[in-house]
Lab assay of single mutants.
Amino acid sequence: AFSSEQLARLKREFNENRYLTERRRQQLSSELGLNEAQIKIWFQNKRA
Rank of each mutant, 00 (worst) to 15 (best):
K46A: 15
S4C: 11
I41E: 15
A1P: 12
E22D: 13
A37R: 12
Q38G: 03
L32S: 02
L28M: 04
R23T: 14
R25I: 15
E5Y: 10
A48K: 13
F2C: 03
S30M: 14
Q38W: 10
T21D: 12
E31P: 00
N35Y: 06
N15Y: 11
L20K: 01
E36R: 04
K11S: 13
L34P: 01
R25S: 15
R12E: 14
L7C: 08
E22S: 12
R12D: 11
R12Y: 12
R9C: 07
E22W: 09
E36K: 05
R18N: 10
I41R: 12
Q26S: 08
L34H: 01
L28P: 00
N45D: 11
A1V: 12
R23Y: 13
L10K: 00
Q44M: 11
Y19S: 06
Q26V: 10
N35L: 09
F43I: 02
K40P: 00
Y19N: 09
E31M: 05
Q26W: 06
S4G: 12
W42R: 00
R9T: 08
F14D: 01
A1H: 13
Q44R: 09
E16V: 10
A8M: 09
Q6I: 11
L20I: 08
L20P: 15
L10I: 02
S29Y: 03
N35F: 07
F14I: 03
L7R: 08
K11Q: 15
S4D: 14
N15M: 12
T21S: 12
R12V: 10
Q44L: 08
E31Y: 05
K40M: 15
E36Y: 04
L20T: 02
A37Y: 13
Y19L: 07
F2V: 05
A48W: 07
E36A: 08
Q6E: 04
E13H: 04
N45E: 15
E13C: 05
K46Y: 14
F43R: 00
N17V: 04
N35H: 11
Q38F: 10
R23H: 14
F2E: 02
G33N: 09
L7Q: 06
R18L: 04
I41D: 14
E13W: 03
N15P: 01
E22H: 13
L10A: 01
Q27L: 10
L28F: 03
E36D: 06
S29H: 03
K11I: 15
N45M: 11
Q38C: 10
I39N: 01
R24D: 05
W42Y: 06
L32Y: 02
R25F: 12
W42E: 00
N15C: 13
R18P: 15
I39C: 02
I39M: 03
R24A: 07
Y19T: 07
R25W: 10
G33W: 03
F43L: 03
Q27S: 08
L34C: 07
L7H: 06
R9Y: 06
A1C: 11
K40E: 15
I39S: 00
K40H: 15
R9A: 12
F43A: 02
L7D: 05
A8P: 00
R47L: 15
A1S: 10
F14N: 01
E31C: 05
N17K: 05
E13D: 03
R24Y: 06
L20E: 06
E13Q: 03
K46L: 07
N45K: 11
R47K: 06
S3W: 03
R25T: 15
S29W: 03
L20W: 04
R25E: 07
E16S: 08
G33I: 03
E36G: 06
S3I: 02
T21P: 06
R47W: 13
Q6S: 04
E22A: 14
L28Y: 00
Q26E: 08
R18W: 08
L32V: 04
K11T: 15
E16M: 10
L20A: 04
N17D: 08
I39V: 10
T21N: 09
W42M: 01
L20N: 02
I39E: 00
Q38K: 06
L7N: 05
E5C: 08
A48F: 08
N35Q: 11
T21R: 04
L7E: 13
N45R: 10
E13F: 04
R24M: 09
E22Y: 08
S4A: 13
N15G: 07
L10P: 01
N15K: 12
F2W: 06
K11F: 11
Q26C: 06
L7F: 04
L28R: 00
K40T: 15
N17S: 09
R24I: 07
S30T: 13
S30V: 14
S4H: 12
A37Q: 14
L34T: 03
T21H: 05
L34K: 02
E16D: 08
G33P: 02
Q6Y: 02
R23N: 14
R24C: 05
E22C: 07
Y19Q: 08
N35G: 11
K40Y: 13
L10F: 02
L20Q: 03
R24N: 04
E5N: 06
T21G: 07
E31T: 05
N35E: 14
E5W: 13
A37N: 14
A37L: 13
N15W: 08
R9V: 13
N17T: 06
E16I: 12
T21C: 07
